[in-house]
Design a binder for these strands. Sequence first.
DNA 1: CGCACTACTGCAATCAGTTGCAACAGCGTG
DNA 2: CACGCTGTTGCAACTGATTGCAGTAGTGCG
Lengths: 150, 150
Amino acid sequence: MMSPRVTPADRRPWDSVREQLHDRGLRWTPQRRAVVDVLATTEGHITGSELIERCRARETKVVPSTVYRTLDVLEQLGLVRHGHGADGREEFHVGAAAEHGHLHCDRCGRHWEIDEPRASAVAEVFGGIGFAVDPSHVTIVGVCAECRTA
Amino acid sequence: MMSPRVTPADRRPWDSVREQLHDRGLRWTPQRRAVVDVLATTEGHITGSELIERCRARETKVVPSTVYRTLDVLEQLGLVRHGHGADGREEFHVGAAAEHGHLHCDRCGRHWEIDEPRASAVAEVFGGIGFAVDPSHVTIVGVCAECRTA
DNA sequence: CGCACTACTGCAATCAGTTGCAACAGCGTG
DNA sequence: CACGCTGTTGCAACTGATTGCAGTAGTGCG
Ligand SMILES: [Mn+2]
Ligand SMILES: [Mn+2]
Ligand SMILES: [Zn+2]
Ligand SMILES: [Zn+2]
């Protein structure tokens, strides 16, 4: 075929969601479209409630349970990953930077993304016993350098 | 005075709670007594709701908000520490084994306590940037060796 | 003992997230 | 296009946790 090739799924993953759902016998609905539309314009993090709000702003009728259930299937497809903030609330990682954990200072409340070398170091600690760490689910809480000296 | 000396606070920490509260201008109430009574007979972990249930079983009237608020002050006194399960729900660490993190397999749902050498290894990863990790707040999620080979 | 100061409690509302269930609606088939 | 299988949705109820507020009650002091 000489027709223009579609960009590979791993470069524009949202373009193929419908197809991926279809392949698994799942359905493409207006609600899922709303969720995917919002996620496609999100880079980094989003919480469940932010997502719900942004879907609602986008006309389509969506209810929380549907959004959370949709996030579940998107996570199974590997299109988002979730972690938890220091308070345990869910955070969804979206896009290129999907795979990373967080460092959270309990004192000043600031937080940082865990960089690759350190993420690997943590993974290695448990790799020794055959345990495969999910990096996006890692949230390390403690006190940052600045707060400790202060 | 020749009266028998009280066991040091760090060996039977619950005996001195009233005193510790007192020293900070805080009060000793029936509700706090109920919470402390339950915690004193708990070793390891307890969730907020378990604690509430066990307080209720012990006659005294307690309401969730009071229990959670009491847990807050006990944590400030260093008598309990909290972490979060893989679903983000709070878990309180009580007693001698208070300081430890958890390893949780997302596939089979089993979990393990993180042992001392590995806890230190994680702490070292972030100690390099001056960040002091709170070990009881660490929950590492991933897939265990058994589930990976299966 | 009784007063006053203020910490603490209970309540009701609210937020984040989950679940069972009955009605609805994709989508493949004929 | 009409049909029906079955995945999906909305709803309502519920769990875990938090918060503002008004009333309650520890605790020190005279
Ligand atoms: Mn926490
Ligand atoms: Mn989780
Ligand atoms: Zn800090
Ligand atoms: Zn496992």
